[in-house]
Amino acid sequence: MLEFRTQGYNGYSVKYSPFFDSRIAVATSANFGLVGNGRLYVLGLTANGIVAEKWFDTQDSLLDTAWSESHENQILAASGDGSIKLFDISLDQFPIQQWSEHSKEVFSVHWNLVNKETFLSSSWDGTIKMWNPNMPTSLVTLPTHSCTYSAQFSPHSPTLLSAVSSDSHLRIFDLRTPASASNHLVMSIPIHTPPKMRMGAAPAMGLPPSEALTHDWNKYRDTVIATGGVDRIIRTFDIRASGQGPMAVLPGHEYAVRKVSWSPHLADVLLSASYDMTCRVWTDGSAMGAKAEPGNPMAFGGGREMGRMGVHTEFATGVDWCLFGAEGWCASTGWDERVLIWDVRAMMGP
């Protein structure tokens, strides 16, 4: 396990570069993001461990970051003052572009993985905005009317995007639909619905709605999305069967789930980071031969926790898989001012 200390700054989000296997960006904030500045670290993995190749200081805290998919030196940072900044890591100090349309904290940014020309931002002001880095203003604004913690493009379609927000709903927008009164919204899935009852199984417990903090598209099954939130449960949904409830329910985290990320190598494996200070690796039970974890009445769909990493000493907030090399390598960050790079396989039980 490799470690880097973001001295004085608490980690909020970590992302591997899509171009280099040795480059990692970390969005951090001073004072746990409560007051003060932010700093965007660009870290390099060298033979001598992790070194900070570059960092950019910002006036307000940084809550998320996303690498450009079209330019290897460009990277986005989502700021607590409602602005989105585009940095070029070959330049010093200042962002090369900045957008300030959101009226509250921008909580996530995500680059389009298919056409690579646009990116999304979601904010506590209740909107998702789509941008082109060459344009001074946003291209599309999609209202959700509630704090939107996470927005993502589908990795399979350039016009399909999704978001989860504090109203406990997973929304799917399709930009191919006309900009009618529904604002491209094609689906709104209540995350807290219990799974559909099945023969021979006890009816699932109903849960109250709770804030959804994170979600991720499966990289192999193009209709599957995992969500996580304040109710401590990770769920997977198939957007083809939006009325069916979750396909898998994965309880286990002791506090809110802050980040989920599907493996880029395996269709059924996902990684999570939580306020219980652990990162855990899960299978959603869709793989052949997976067996359900006995005991937990909340569990559904045959998924189970496969391993956990408990090295972080404060809330774990960010986790990301390495796209290159051997499957299983990932990076995590948390409020303990640390970035850890570790192999998931080493954390897995027998």
Binding site: G33, V35, C147, Y149, L213, A256, Y275
Partner: peptide, 17 residues
């Protein structure tokens, strides 16, 4: 400090609704 306030929903698991 507004973020401190805002923050708490994020940690909602730790807080009563």
């Amino acid at each position: 400090m507004s973020r401190a306030v805002d923050f708490s929903p994020d940690e909602g698991a730790m807080l009563q609704q």
